[in-house]
Write a protein that binds this DNA or RNA. Structure first.
Lengths: 254, 254
DNA sequence: GCTTGACCTTTACGCAACGTGAAGGTGTAG
DNA sequence: CTACACCTTCACGTTGCGTAAAGGTCAAGC
């Protein structure tokens, strides 16, 4: 029952490179080496390769497999749990991806003025992605994931007019904010109008408005580089100003 | 509205390496290069980067993104459909993986004699994986996926004794087959006994026995390298002999 | 004007798990 | 004896950047 690389490989359904690579990284050494330098594997190596294949099938990295197989005291169970966590996260991400993709395809199939529509779609998808990336963690923690999913779903199912309204609203927020910034007073009329527009904008995403959450978001804004980079690109300090205005608007300025 | 790499990068929420890399592969060139060699990006480049991020978010490779963005006649819709197909396959694979992993974890949590039990689990999982890999496509096509899933579920839920019985049966098949092979007659008594044992073995996996399916499987055997490699490892021609015996057994030898 | 520190540049190795030649030795069947 | 199939060891290619290393540039403060 001795095997060369090729025989071992075809037995396991992998390429001959695989046992050689495993030898190279010290994961699976041949039982012995023939006088001509051929790798010779025995039944013990077949067993070990099967073990390796098993863990590999579970998506465990070769380094980790080495740990598992080599140290008998290694907490394989804990490793598997951690691995499961990673896989679940990966699947969730994949699901999100597929959902986005399907929406995109559906929309693209519907319309014939592709170029314009595609740009539009791009915008919506980007919004979803950014919304998820920016608020994902925090909103999830605060309201649970359902709210966020509803938010994304709403965004995806928006009509073109709604999306345009959102875009327009977004523009209005910035415009008003800039005008308010010129006054320098975050509690002034213009600033409060900007904060209110921002609330309206927010209501596109959140199922129900919540003052505390709005204020919390405002505080988050000034700490999030992505946000400050976006708002400060024209006028530095604009993000901080918006934050102050919102805190005043929600009455949480302490 | 001009940006250096860092500014552009933080605007998009990526690292500064990313725009440089995109420049390197010709995916996103800066609008111009300053006298000092700095990359300077304008709003057009920001837009393009957003497009790139959009497709990247969908998991499309950078090369493909380049195709999409550069050729106006490129069938983006078709590309997206193909991409969806790949993602769905990937998710199915991931689901299978997670299911296996969870079974393994559950079993490991239950028992305390880990080392033995783990090896046993490894065996079972391997059987599932092999069963899936070997018969997956064909069985799925013939009986629908439900049967296969039931088969896998059965295998996973087998008691240790059942699994040992299966192992023993598997050994018996090979032993009888070898003895029959010595007689040279695939229609002889021993060969028919081997075929019957093989039927019993098969009944561990298939919810109901079907002569036609058994014969079909036999024909498949000699075409499948993984199978022939397994059976021919001791005696070349054994796989073909088993096939002949089964065809005779099922009366489908035409 | 000079230093400091935060930017920028190119070059190039590293990652995971092999795929894929290239160049050459070995084993066996006809 | 000669194919021909198998084996060996380099060693570079893949993806999408991360991460130094070694050095130039820019705005600010002294």
């Amino acid at each position: 029952m001795e095997y060369t690389v090729q025989r071992l490989a075809s037995l396991a359904g992998v390429s001959a490179r695989t046992p050689r690579y495993y030898d190279e990284i010290g994961l699976l050494k041949p039982a012995r080496v023939s006088s001509a330098g051929y790798r010779i594997y025995g039944t013990a190596e077949v067993d070990r390769l099967q073990q390796i294949m098993f863990y590999r099938e579970l998506g465990v990295g070769l380094g980790e497999i080495k740990q598992i197989l080599e140290s008998p005291g290694f907490d394989a169970l804990q490793a598997l749990r951690e691995h499961r966590r990673q896989l679940l996260a990966k699947r969730e991400q994949l699901d999100q991806l597929i959902a986005n993709l399907e929406k995109t395809i559906a929309q693209a199939e519907g319309g014939r003025t592709m170029s314009d529509r595609e740009k539009f779609e791009g915008f919506k998808q980007k919004m979803i992605a950014e919304n998820e990336a920016r608020y994902g963690e925090e909103v999830r923690a605060k309201f649970g994931r359902e709210a966020l999913e509803r938010s994304n779903k709403m965004l995806a199912n928006m009509t073109e007019e709604q999306a345009k309204a959102l875009q327009e609203l977004s523009r209005e927020v910035i415009e008003t904010l800039k005008a308010a910034y010129a006054t320098g007073d975050p509690k002034g009329e213009l600033a409060q109008k900007a904060a209110d527009l921002h609330r309206q904008w927010l209501c596109f995403f959140w199922p129900q408005y919540d003052k505390e959450a709005h204020a919390g978001l405002a505080r988050m804004y000034v700490q999030d580089e992505r946000f400050t980079a976006y708002y400060d690109q024209d006028q530095p300090g604009l993000a901080q100003f918006l934050c102050d205005a919102i805190l005043a608007y929600t009455g949480q300025e302490n």
